[in-house]
Amino acid sequence: MQGDGVHQGSETDRVDALKAGTAAAWTQLLSHHGPSLLAYAIRMLGDRSTAEEIVQDSLVNIYHTIDRFDGRCSIKSWLYRAVHNNAIDEIRRRKRYVDVGHEAQEAYFDEAGRWINDCPGWDGLAPKQMDEKRLLGIVRQQMDRLPHAHREVLLLKEVEGFSGQEICDALDISPGNLRIRIHRARAALRAAVVEG
């Protein structure tokens, strides 16, 4: 995919170069993943300067501990896991962590599994009904207000386009857990966007 020298080799070659401390390999790694890592941290933390500190510290720490990387997951997942864990620690330290509530969709259905009220709708969501840029602004804003546990899976799955395995590795969760969390997170985002 990448046309540069470092990214043409296998992941093992790249990891070897990183472990050897090759500056070019580190520059490549940082320029390839750094901006996305920072974007992820900004969306999780809500402010850029703290996000920069978190990403800096995580990357420096990764540099010092790269020998411990055992290749059981991709280097990308490893980077995200480090930034994610540090971001969550910081959010918890500031007591700003928003846990997942019980906003389960069962509330929509009666005991027989039928809609209690009609599915709440927002016709503005239909393509061509509203300027897409404005819609994207609304989706983004609502995503940034979701509980962190929902936000993190949506950022990795929908925004970053991670595979299921990569998300499991980055968040240290099981595939079964991921499946449930993705569904709940999407349902929460739908509710936030459609129902406000």
Binding site: R140, V159, R190
Partner: peptide, 25 residues
């Protein structure tokens, strides 16, 4: 609605990467 919101969530990022990463780098 579910599909549409998922599709829109996937479009949020491209113009959204921080431009200035030099400081961290």
């Amino acid at each position: 609605q579910f599909k549409r919101v998922k599709e829109l969530a996937g479009k949020v990022s491209p113009d959204d990467l921080p431009e200035d990463f030099d400081h961290v780098m």
